[in-house]
């Protein structure tokens, strides 16, 4: 058996409302709120990035796992906003938690599914017996060009998972990946903001891959949507995960616990992993969870988790995801947001 022995999430305290962004660009806030099902999004402080959020989320994961960080054999950070173009985020994270030097480290990249890639690889390394524990993080300070539709959702957050064999909180029952070459969203080298193919990001991209991965994994394990207590899908907005859930046959009550985007925004590589942390905060022993990520380019990783009796011992050992999301928020205006996100061109 392999699975999750510790988990944690981190969300910056700053928020900006859809109305504040729409006011600047002269757009109709209600059409975005209704069309995307998003109310507000998180914004990193100027001194926060993928690395700092990864460290905080991992410190929470370690509180729940109660393991010696020196026993972690791999540190993998999945993100599309690594602070360095050349120098791994994982080196800083591994050093900050005290996992160095006997550790393998790499940064992962696959648009919004870089975090689930790291989870997938850690699970398999632990399963193979190569290491006792593997650390997988999905984190992003997402980029969205000023005035682009992405600006209403591109947010910041991190989820961290420690994978192991013993004392599991949730067992990985099955994994499955579904991938094709689909150019729906990309960012070329030296470009500051990503580009996307508008409506093409929907049916042939997000929906095709999530449905393909979900159906594939359900077929492997011979389970149906009604067998699951929870399901969480990648959340580029609030609307898509509810729609794909409905297409697959899930009911709204199976989707609500992991749905964070309407109040957090799209945390890209952190998106479905953070939804999973919110579910684990509330899950009970024997609950089954389906998680399906999505990364543009494009592909989906699917996981089926079975919650163990140990979950209730650790849920309160670190802050819960929805408590972080809902408490201690600071609302900022667009000017402050533009300064924090480096959108203002200054003199050299």
């Amino acid at each position: 058996m392999v699975g999750i022995v510790g988990y944690g999430a981190y969300i910056p305290k700053n928020r900006i409302k859809v109305e504040e962004i729409a006011k600047v660009w002269g757009t109709d806030a209600n059409s975005y709120k209704k069309g995307l099902f998003v109310e507000e999004k998180s914004v990193p402080s100027p001194d926060q990035d993928t690395i700092t959020m990864s460290v905080e989320a991992t410190l929470y994961a370690l509180k729940r796992a109660q393991i010696d960080p020196k026993k972690i054999g791999a540190v993998y950070v999945g993100s599309e906003s690594h602070p360095y173009a050349v120098k791994p985020s994982g080196t800083v994270l591994a050093e900050a938690i005290g996992a160095t030097p006997d550790v393998h480290c790499a940064d992962f990249e696959f648009a919004c599914k870089a975090g689930s890639e790291a989870m997938f690889v850690c699970l398999e390394l632990v399963r193979s017996g190569s290491m006792e524990y593997g650390l997988a993080v999905g984190a992003d300070t997402s980029q969205g060009a000023p005035g682009d539709a992405l600006e209403y959702t591109a947010a910041a957050g991190a989820a961290s998972f420690i994978m192991g064999k013993d004392n599991l909180l949730a067992e990985a029952i099955e994994t499955y990946s579904y991938m094709t070459d689909t150019p729906d969203f990309w960012r070329r080298e030296y470009q500051y903001y990503p580009r996307h193919a508008s409506r093409f990001t929907g049916e042939p991209a997000y929906f095709k891959h999530i449905i393909g991965a979900a159906k594939g994994i359900l077929k492997k394990v011979k389970l149906e949507p009604k067998d699951f207590k929870y399901a969480v899908f990648h959340q580029p907005n609030g609307k898509f995960p509810l729609k794909v859930g409905k297409i697959l046959g899930f009911k709204r009550e199976q989707l609500d616990t992991g749905l964070l985007c309407p109040w957090m925004g799209n945390t890209y590589s952190g998106s479905s992993p953070m939804g999973l942390t919110a579910i684990l905060d509330e899950a009970k022993p024997d609950d089954l969870i389906l998680m399906v990520s999505y990364g543009s380019g494009a592909g989906s990783d699917a996981f089926i988790w079975k919650v163990t009796p140990k979950i209730s011992e650790v849920q309160n050992k670190a802050p819960k995801t929805k408590d972080i999301l809902n408490n201690n928020k600071t609302y900022i205006d667009y000017g402050t947001y533009a300064k924090y996100r480096g959108k203002i061109r200054k003199a050299e």
């Binding site: 402080s45 100027p46 001194d47 926060q48 990035d49 690395i51 700092t52 460290v55 905080e56 410190l59 602070p83 360095y84 800083v92 900050a96």
Partner: peptide
Amino acid sequence: IEFRKIYSEGEAGIICY
């Protein structure tokens, strides 16, 4: 205590955490 960026050495230098 939280882990944060202390400062960056310009656009091309190291980031100090």
